[in-house]
């Protein structure tokens, strides 16, 4: 895991790419490759972001979306990890339930949108439900796979050193599965962020997904792109935050080699 220390020049590379992309965008706009009504200029989008911040709408939408993602995702983690632990330790239940879990995992969460609206109406609940459906099954599968693959020697060591039943869970099982579970949290949090946008476009009256849908309906292409940019940036920030978990000293062993 030792990479050469980056020079400042190397660190600036992504910024250079960013400016190049904006330049291309600006050139396309100048050349009128697309009609102006459906292709906003970088400047208009920047102004759009400023306007959304000033009116407070961006803040509201951001909070609404983040609330739904956090709630749905947390529910999926709090239920999915224990279910995965249980299935990982009980072969018969695993045999019985795994096909069903794989079925739901393979079913696009967006397929639930009609039922989400019929059952929960419009607002926070349908979005939270969809995020939960998107995250719960992958987390269960990742956890049970991690539990099933813990080398038995760790449990033999635990017996040699007389761990209690509770210590087996907190000092062997949980730390042993942590690296794999954290990886699956990163993947599913990304999934949750994808799903919330779709959910809000159809079943929301606020949130970033609703904001871009609303901008499209109002033919405000500048606000549409502004919303897209915010969605992408927040997705990156969420992944960055979760990546920090992989740097915890007692889990970093799981990411070597």
């Amino acid at each position: 895991m030792t990479e050469k220390p980056f020079t400042t020049g190397t660190r600036l590379l992504p910024l250079i790419v960013l400016f190049a992309a904006i330049a291309v965008w600006w050139a396309l706009w100048q050349l009128r490759v697309f009609p102006e009504s459906v292709f906003p200029s970088p400047l208009a989008v920047a102004k759009g972001i400023g306007e959304e911040i000033r009116t407070g709408r961006l803040g509201n939408d951001l909070v609404a979306s983040l609330f739904r993602v956090t709630t749905g995702f947390m529910l999926a983690v709090l239920l999915g990890v224990p279910v995965g632990l249980w299935l990982g330790n009980h072969v018969r239940s695993r045999l019985a339930l795994l096909p069903a879990i794989n079925f739901f995992r393979s079913l696009s969460p967006l397929a639930w949108i009609p039922f989400a609206i019929l059952w929960f109406g419009i607002g926070d609940l349908p979005a939270i439900f969809l995020i939960f459906m998107a995250c719960f099954f992958p987390i269960v599968v990742a956890t049970l796979a991690a539990v099933a693959s813990i080398p038995s020697v760790y449990f033999r060591v635990a017996r040699d050193y007389r761990f209690s039943g509770l210590e087996l869970l907190t000092k062997v099982t949980l730390p042993a599965i942590a690296p794999q579970v954290i990886t699956s949290l990163r993947v599913t949090a990304g999934l949750a962020w994808l799903v919330v946008v779709a959910a809000e476009m159809i079943a929301g009256r606020d949130g970033l997904g609703f904001a871009i849908w609303d901008a499209r309906n109002g033919l405000r292409m500048d606000l549409l792109v502004a919303g897209m940019i915010v969605i992408g940036v927040i997705g990156m920030v969420i992944d960055r935050l979760l990546m920090r978990l992989t740097k915890i000293r007692s889990v970093s062993w799981g990411y070597e080699g």
Binding site: V153, V157, V172, P175, V251, W253, G254
Partner: peptide, 10 residues
């Protein structure tokens, strides 16, 4: 143990 019996998270 013949093969790594240390707990890697400790």
């Amino acid at each position: 143990y013949q093969h790594d019996g240390l707990l890697p998270w400790q």
